[in-house]
Design a protein around this nucleic acid. Sequence first.
RNA 1: GCGUCGGUGGUAGAGUGGUCAAUUACAACAGACUGUAAAUCUGUCGCCCUACGGGCUUCGUUGGUUCAAAUCCAACCCGGCGCA
Length: 431
Amino acid sequence: MSNKKFSFEIDKKSNEAPLARVGVIHTPHGDIQTPAFIPVGTKATVKALSVEDIKKTLGQAVLANTYHLYLQPGADIVASHGGFAKMMHWESEIKNEDGQLEKVCLPTFTDSGGFQVFSLGAAYDTGVSKIATSAQLSAKQKQTTDDKGEVKIKSSKTQMARIDEDGVTFKSFINGSYHRFTPETSMQIQHALGADIFFAFDECTSPLASREYQISAMQRTHRWAKRCIDEHKRLGISSATGEQQALFAVVQGGAFDDLRKESAETLGAMDFDGFGIGGSFTKEDMGKTVKSATENLPEGKPRHLLGIGEPIDFFLGVEYGIDTFDCVSPTRVARHGNIYAPDGKINITNAKYKNDMSQISNDESSPYYNYTKSYLHHLFKAEEMMAATIASAHNLYFLIKIVSDIRQSILDDRFFEFKKSFCDRYYNGKY
RNA sequence: GCGUCGGUGGUAGAGUGGUCAAUUACAACAGACUGUAAAUCUGUCGCCCUACGGGCUUCGUUGGUUCAAAUCCAACCCGGCGCA
């Protein structure tokens, strides 16, 4: 048991970007230096990585998922372990007052299941992700007037999630059984999972949803937010860890600036410990959408940009006031053979790397920097499991390092200089 | 030597007169992936072109039957098995 409480302190506000800041999130299980990238470990494991690997990537926290852990192994089992951090041994050894080594858990997040409302609902089997392409948007716009859009947006008839005012009915992707999630059950499960920071149950909308739908979904998310706070207060401390948990709201409103503002103001007036920016938008206007949210949120509370992102997203997010990020991309693309490199992402499975004796990274702090591209290429071709491990650790480190470097650049008053030098190289001058 | 079965695209292996440039799998080549139904999914995979169409060359070799052959016939070459 720890007597440390959740809090957030801003150490420095950027002299260059009005909304950007450097800070520290204090949790009962340790601090998170922000801005920070949080690795995703959906089922209480960052896929392909040991806890030691995660530490080598300099990950400060792990984010797990309510829906997945509820289905498997079950929230009660996680709670019996003392929470998911303890279950996965996301902990470090410290010397206590008696000089004895003692294991203490490290910071954790859980997502609420709100993303699955989208990924198993509107997005199910449609090929639409939370970042819409302009082609998808224009095809969708055409659909309303003309049914022959070039990009076909498949409308799914077999969604795995259905929403109503009270909650969401999910069909298990494991065995097809039905499960009911409400704001209250999401809170109960997340209390059992025991993360330091957890999210209100929201509805992540499709980037292709109409403005009318975005409004009604946002308003429902606001009503659910109130129910989440009430249930969280009723539940008190985590049943799994015995610690106080911090509850973050999720700002919605799609790509509409006025809705983002309304959502931020509405949720900002409620008693949340921090805020997630959720939902969807196109790549092009992500920055302004985030800005519309953050500039209307209470300044002194942390903001998390849910499910983002890629290198450029970190620069945009931090510039507009984001403190933490999470994203499955680095580990997912890693398993598919893509690794981040200073000049852009490369596909290590490409034939040109078969005999490439250069190292996968020139950064000696990167967990597996000294393996050759040729070796990693071979591991992928041979379908060896270490391919996923090396690539995942490498990618996570690469992204965590960018955000960490952004943090330092704000402290040094050279944020835009760093952004330019990074993007000039990584994106070949774009951005 | 006799008998018998078989030789198909990088590999395995379908097809046994037209709908076959040839099912399928694997390999190969490339692409996608943003709060993880994802160690997944998609595309290409004989050659050439003015490429949602057209031309050319392919199913051991050679010759033949037929309007039409990977598919039928003959000879030959090669391989497995059986008997000498």
